[in-house]
Design a protein around this nucleic acid. Structure first.
Lengths: 342, 342
DNA sequence: TTGTAAGCGTTATCAC
DNA sequence: GTGATAACGCTTACAA
């Protein structure tokens, strides 16, 4: 087991000074042709690679970006990570992934760990508990310390930083409009509780679409789910006594549960009831019937977030004071859980 | 924007030396009660946190572990990551995630990046291309440099290191035995090409189960798929002219494609054909019919891998020369794509 | 009880 | 052209 080669060792071996080696390897014109060649040959032969940690200390930047997400076993977040990875790698950055498990405390802890030199900046989607508490001091602290922060998906207005979101309202509107277009008259909504911003926004889109089509919004057609675990039965109970012919669910799980519940009521999808979801995952694609959904381009969001962050990291500090919110567009993926357009 | 507090600044502020501050904060008995209190109070007030990079450089360890996987948009790998994260965090480690995209070159590149000080060790599942090439010099190099390596899932015999695998052969055997138990006579196998070790092993389990039940293995009942993209049509074509009553697929995608193909032939699952998959994901759980599968406990594997790695990292170098292979057990999750046991 | 100095691996500045 | 030296932030013998 040979420990890693350092400049010092090369210097000793070749009987020159450390700084000569350093300069030679970085092609400094100060160094004579001959010595340079010799040093480079030696380094290449022994496969010298500069130590990242030392560089980080010296440059006061680590070339790694931290991403903190609520959970990873979730198709959407997974695609975001892969988007971040992609552009990060292209730009010579590494990605440190931390999970908050939707816990406020873990989120704070993770940030503190990473803020002490481990990363140059953050890409985050907030924990559910954090949004519930409304406590964002940790975000503000990071920003105050000069750590750039990019929020995505689950963002919050009070914090001034770059953001990447999707047009939830418009996406939801598209979905509901589609239901209307294929002839649905009584359209239900299955959403989450309001402090989860996306649930809130998608609900708004639902309402707007109805209003624009002069359809009354009826409260009893709306279900707001608190806990993921109970969602299946909640949806069943909700749909049992309703006579809906269209359902907009704010995620694919709810959509699928809705389809199951509809079938259990002896009705068919999409013949009797059209169902449309949000977020395009493997499940939506391969479920039978395959799901019509609003696609949420996670990978694109990750790429945008990474680009935004790296741009900020590499800009001079003075020009850094403009913050942008990038809205990435959703698309409607029409499949088999909705009737075809008339 | 206040830059981070350092020992130096504290020292200057309090008019003591840097080492005094350092010692005081680490509760060295060398330092007088009074000075210590003063320093600690100050540090606490201004929320001093030591710089990780500096510590890494000094201690020659980063307290982060690198995980390199072929892809992240894949339920199994995702659960592994969450397992690794879990125990890593408990032990005070961070996790750097890199994706090889199943490319040999990217895998090598990633390892080189991380090996230069960014991580203390690796947890990896090999890229498909790497297994195909059979070139493992990068792994060997890391080991030679004293970087511990834990391989999981897609492992390779030639490399001496810790490994975490599942009992693929036994798992496959369980699956096929289950098919036999519910009365299947003509059982087909949908697998991957042989250089992917898991495909290979699961094929072996299939053969063994048949042999142990005195059923002849017929080559025309076996399909080996080369490319994920064409799998759907390949499976359709394969099943069209067969008269199987049981199908064992080595992953959930193949299983679902098989179900679809069976249905298109006008047969029913599980009445006419029982189908069983491998790896338990969201898809298996919620597909209709829900899939009977061999569950592959990714999270458990991740935890074991992390434990193994950290153990090695924190042991004295001399006792480090024993390598272990941990075999985590699969389970059979019986759902609706197979007939019920007679 | 406190301070000095060396060292972790680099790079940049300045002197020779 | 080459080499000392300081610095990044921290720890730790060793002096004082």
């Amino acid at each position: 087991m040979k420990p890693k080669l350092t400049l010092k060792q090369i210097a000793k071996e070749l009987d020159v000074s450390i700084s000569t080696v350093s300069k030679a390897l970085r092609d400094s014109p100060e160094i004579g042709e001959e010595t340079r060649k010799k040093i480079k040959a030696f380094a290449k032969f022994y496969n010298y690679k500069p130590n990242n940690i030392a560089l980080s200390l010296k440059n006061r930047k680590t070339k790694t970006i931290g991403i903190i997400i609520p959970e990873i076993v979730h198709h959407f977040f997974t695609t975001v990570i892969s988007g971040v990875e992609k552009v990060a790698n292209e730009m010579g950055y590494n990605v440190l992934v931390c999970l908050s498990d939707n816990s406020f405390d873990k989120e704070v802890l993770n940030m503190e760990m990473l803020a002490n030199g481990s990363t140059d900046g953050f890409i985050m989607s907030l924990a559910k508990e954090t949004m519930q508490k409304g406590d964002y001091h940790h975000l503000q602290e990071a920003i105050n310390q000069g750590m750039p922060l990019v929020l995505f998906d689950r963002v919050v207005d009070g914090i001034t930083c770059d953001k990447v979101i999707i047009d939830d309202v418009i996406g939801a509107k598209k979905a509901v409009q589609h239901l209307i277009d294929v002839g649905c008259k009584k359209i239900g909504l299955i959403s989450t509780v309001d402090y989860v911003s996306v649930g809130n926004l998608r609900t708004r889109g639902y309402q707007q679409a109805l209003e624009e089509n002069n359809i009354a919004v009826e409260e009893q057609h709306i279900l707001k789910i608190e806990k993921m675990e109970d969602s299946e039965t909640a949806i069943e109970n909700f749909l049992k006594d309703k006579d809906l012919d269209g359902i907009f669910a704010v995620n694919e799980h709810f959509a699928i549960s809705a389809i199951k519940a509809v079938k259990e009521c002896g009705k068919n999808v999409p013949e009797d009831v059209s169902v449309i979801g949000f977020t395009d995952g493997e499940l939506s694609k391969r479920f039978i019937p395959s799901l019509t959904t609003v696609s949420q381009p996670g990978s694109k969001m990750g790429e945008e977030a990474a680009r935004l962050l790296i741009e900020k990291l590499e800009s001079k500090n003075d020009e850094a004071e403009n913050y942008r919110t990038i809205i990435v567009e959703t698309g409607l993926v029409t499949r088999n859980s909705t009737k075809s357009e008339k």
